[in-house]
């Protein structure tokens, strides 16, 4: 087997393997929340106001971190629970673009001003991306 191919095989397997405990934990947690909390509760948490919902979604996504796959699964299950697409989109975009957890490392290596500005803009853009995407999806 080609050495480079073997290395990429190992690297990919390691990525998936490292993700497994979090992924299993998140799926178990989603399932537990799904069994314990009635669907009506979610509609109380989200107001159906497009701006407010996207801000709540972005806020949640910003403080959570991890592989994007996890955010897709949580987002997909949120959607099934009746949470609006705009809130779910904002949540997923903020999850992958805003890095509160990585902020200290990013500040240290790339500069405080750069890191703060990038994360702040990413937060605002996650709201904008969600609204624009859902608007276009609705049009087409």
């Amino acid at each position: 087997m080609n050495k480079e191919f073997k290395q990429s095989l190992i690297k990919s397997w390691r990525s998936i393997y490292n993700l497994l405990p979090v992924l299993i934990g998140v799926i178990l947690l989603i399932s537990l929340v799904n069994a314990l909390i009635p669907k009506a509760y979610y509609s109380k948490l989200f107001s159906k106001n497009i701006f407010l919902d996207s801000i709540i979604g972005s806020g949640l996504g910003s403080i959570m971190a991890g592989n994007p796959i996890t955010s897709y699964i949580i987002g997909g299950e949120f959607l099934k629970q009746g949470i609006s697409l705009v809130a779910v989109t904002a949540f997923m975009v903020a999850w992958v673009t805003v890095g509160i957890v990585q902020l200290p490392a990013e500040s240290l290596i790339l500069g405080k001003k750069f890191a703060i500005m990038r994360n702040l803009l990413s937060f605002l853009f996650s709201i904008m991306v969600a609204i624009v995407t859902v608007f276009i999806v609705g049009l087409i």
Partner: peptide
């Protein structure tokens, strides 16, 4: 109820993981 729900999600995403793994290998190379 929770465990049934968990099994359902896993059944849905395992085939996707096979595709994801394949694409990751290609890109990592």
């Amino acid at each position: 109820e929770s465990l049934n729900f968990t099994i359902r999600i896993f059944k849905q995403i395992i085939p996707l993981f096979i595709i994801i793994f394949g694409l990751m290998v290609i890109i990592n190379q």
